[in-house]
């Protein structure tokens, strides 16, 4: 009997960590996909993407008490998306004629600035998200297992909806066709008469929107602190490398693998949790450098 209870306890732990990993994975997917679309089309990397995620969380935190849960979430994402478009058209556009490393340097600098602004406005310490609406704050019970509604149901549903939206946008619309063509050969698309700078700004806005939304979704679950920016950006890089640069499915599979495995690592060796993603990245590099869904030749 005691043995049975013990194994049930282990099962509960594994299940809890697995679903924590799914939650984390969903957020990784949103952030990484945003970064990936930008990277695929424009060939530049936005180090401030992590800062956009963090800003999204702070925006949601600030707006929620005033406008309510739903509007705060989407307003936060929209603000970050619009901010991303402004950011791209003023700071990143002058750099397209240079080697892409300069964009990384510039956005690294801006990430430092954003983090300090957040420290100035909201302070160094973690802020606590106000209460969720009642219908999201409970748990669903299945037998002896408990699933928090917000984390395990709502967040997953929203992510799946957004992913479906992005998939439709990229695969079924004219804009998506231009994005896909531009990812293959931006020069050629430009020659065909498409206004690429406008496309770049738009895509940068979509990517930033997703980072902002992920931040807003993360706000009720994780501690909202200024260092979220640098923590998340590097893990996002890892997800992108594992999944494959510029790949839609790559971001999804990479995000889930890294989210779930690093959460399960909590059960095996807590100090090694942060290393999990990097170990997976090392293995992927050994056996499949382009990433799971990466396109051969791109960035290799």
């Amino acid at each position: 009997m005691g043995h049975l209870a013990e194994s049930a306890g282990v099962l509960h732990n594994v299940s809890d960590q697995f679903f924590n990993g799914v939650t984390l994975g969903m957020l990784y997917i949103l952030v990484a996909l945003g970064l990936n679309i930008i990277l695929g089309l424009m060939g530049v990397i936005n180090f401030s993407h992590g800062a956009f995620f963090m800003l999204g969380a702070y925006m949601a935190f600030t707006l929620a008490p005033h406008v309510g849960f739903w509007p705060s979430m989407f307003l936060a994402a929209l603000i970050i998306g619009a901010f991303g478009m402004l950011f791209e058209s003023t700071l990143i556009r002058p750099l397209y004629r240079r080697i892409p490393e300069y964009t990384l340097l510039l956005t690294y600098g801006t990430a430092m600035i954003f983090e300090q602004i957040v420290r100035r406005v909201w302070g160094d310490d973690a802020v606590r998200y106000p209460n969720l609406p009642n219908y999201l704050s409970g748990s669903i019970e299945l037998g002896s297992f408990q699933f928090p509604i917000y984390k395990d149901v709502f967040l997953v549903l929203i992510t799946v909806l957004i992913l479906a939206g992005v998939w439709l946008l990229v695969n079924k619309t004219n804009i998506g066709m231009i994005i896909r063509a531009g990812t293959r050969d931006a020069e050629m698309v430009k020659i065909l008469g498409i206004n690429m700078p406008v496309m770049f700004t738009l895509v940068f806005g979509i990517g930033s929107f997703m980072a902002g939304l992920a931040g807003a979704l993360a706000a009720p679950v994780y501690a909202i602190i200024p260092s979220l920016a640098s923590q998340w950006i590097i893990l996002t890089f890892v997800v992108v490398i594992v999944g494959g640069i510029g790949s839609f499915w790559g971001a999804i599979v990479g995000g889930l693998i890294i989210g779930i495995l690093s959460s399960l690592m909590e059960l095996i060796s807590p100090p090694a949790v942060e290393l999990t993603g990097f170990i997976i990245m090392g293995l992927i590099l050994l056996v499949r450098p382009r990433g799971i869904f990466g396109v051969e030749g791109l960035f290799e």
Partner: peptide
């Protein structure tokens, strides 16, 4: 790896 991919990997 090379280029920007190289930068990301060294950072990681």
């Amino acid at each position: 790896s090379s280029g920007i991919y190289y930068s990301m990997i060294t950072m990681a």
